[in-house]
Computed example of a mutant assay.
Amino acid sequence: MGRVTTREKLLRVRDGAVSERVDTLVVEEPLEVRLDGEPLTVTMRTPGHDFDLAAGFLVSEGVVARSSDIAAIRYCAGAAEDGANTYNILDVAVAAGVALPEASLQRNFYTTSSCGLCGKASLEAVRTTSRWTVADDPVRIDHRAFAAMPERLRAAQRVFDRTGGLHAAGLFDAAGELLALREDVGRHNAVDKLVGWAVREDRLPLRGTALMVSGRASFELAQKAVMAGIPVLAAVSAPSSLAVGLAADAGLTLVGFLRGASMNVYAGRHRVVVERDAAAQAPATART
């Protein structure tokens, strides 16, 4: 297993004063994912939970939906000069009868940690048909439970506390309790690691849950939520127009700018329960 953090020397300048110090940085390394021995994709990620990352990626591509679809996941020999395993190559063997992805749905061989969508062959290819539907999920979440999610997510980010350089994806229940969390230098990787954990635990579809991400809500993150059967996606920052469109089409509740008690609900507002203060709702009484 590779290192999650590393220490590097730097020159610090503050108000004209110069000093040398050592800083803790998050590690970013390539991970090549192979499917039945054939190269599928390379993504830049933070080492850790690599098996979950690969499994979650395959859920997003519509290849697997349960743990029995995966026969095995193993590290392959790396490319270190001394012949040691770099733990940067994974091979996923699918079970008999599991169809491999079509060429039109495969990503280019290299994708960045910041944008998993960049390697897609086309926008239409991203609209993979999910095995689950979220439109009929009856879950409703109180606005106060939403308000508690950002702080609970932040409190559970152990590596972020040391580096300040990681995204997080958290899975919450309808009461706002954190069920699981994954961190990564890439937003989409953090979500894949979370979904991969769920599929390997045979928890899909993730009905009655909410996915919260520490950055913005992109089209791909909305797609990953739908592909995992998650009915609610919340983000601390803005959604994209494509994410809003997909959420509306799929019946996904999409919340953006979730910061404390403030939020914007862009789609699926029926799942957000807001109980206004009784005094605020009461009609004004005429003064005499």
Rank of each mutant, 00 (worst) to 15 (best):
A103E: 15
L58S: 06
A99H: 00
E81C: 03
A135Q: 09
S60A: 15
D82F: 01
I141H: 07
F146W: 12
D36W: 03
F109D: 11
V33Q: 02
T86Y: 04
I70F: 02
A77M: 02
T46K: 11
V126K: 13
A80I: 00
E38A: 13
E102I: 08
G56S: 10
V33F: 03
T46H: 10
K120D: 10
D142H: 14
N85M: 00
T112D: 10
V64I: 15
F109K: 02
G97Q: 07
S67L: 03
P47I: 00
R127K: 13
I89M: 07
N85H: 01
G119E: 06
T86W: 00
A121P: 07
R34C: 11
V94H: 06
V98A: 03
S68P: 05
H143G: 06
L31R: 00
H49S: 11
V59L: 12
M44H: 03
K120C: 13
P101S: 10
L58R: 08
V139M: 11
A54S: 10
E151M: 07
L123P: 09
K120Y: 08
D36C: 06
A103D: 13
L31Q: 10
A71Q: 14
E124M: 15
S122Q: 14
G116L: 07
D50G: 09
E32A: 11
H143T: 06
A54N: 08
C115I: 05
A95Y: 03
S122I: 12
R34T: 09
V139P: 13
T86P: 00
E124T: 07
V139A: 15
A71F: 01
I141T: 07
L153T: 11
M44R: 10
N85C: 02
S113M: 05
E81G: 00
C118R: 05
A79Q: 08
G78R: 04
A147Q: 04
T112E: 12
L123K: 05
E61I: 01
R127A: 09
Y87L: 01
A84I: 00
E151F: 03
R74I: 14
D142Y: 06
G97R: 02
S60C: 14
R154V: 01
M149E: 01
L100K: 12
A79P: 00
S60E: 15
A93M: 14
L53Y: 05
E61T: 15
I89W: 04
I141W: 08
E102L: 11
A156E: 11
L40E: 01
A121F: 12
R152I: 08
A155G: 10
I73W: 06
R66M: 03
I141E: 13
Y110I: 02
R74G: 09
Q106R: 15
G62E: 12
H143Q: 09
Y75W: 04
A93D: 11
R144E: 09
D36P: 01
A125L: 12
S122H: 14
E61A: 14
T46L: 14
N85V: 01
D82G: 03
Y110R: 04
R66F: 03
V63Q: 09
E38C: 06
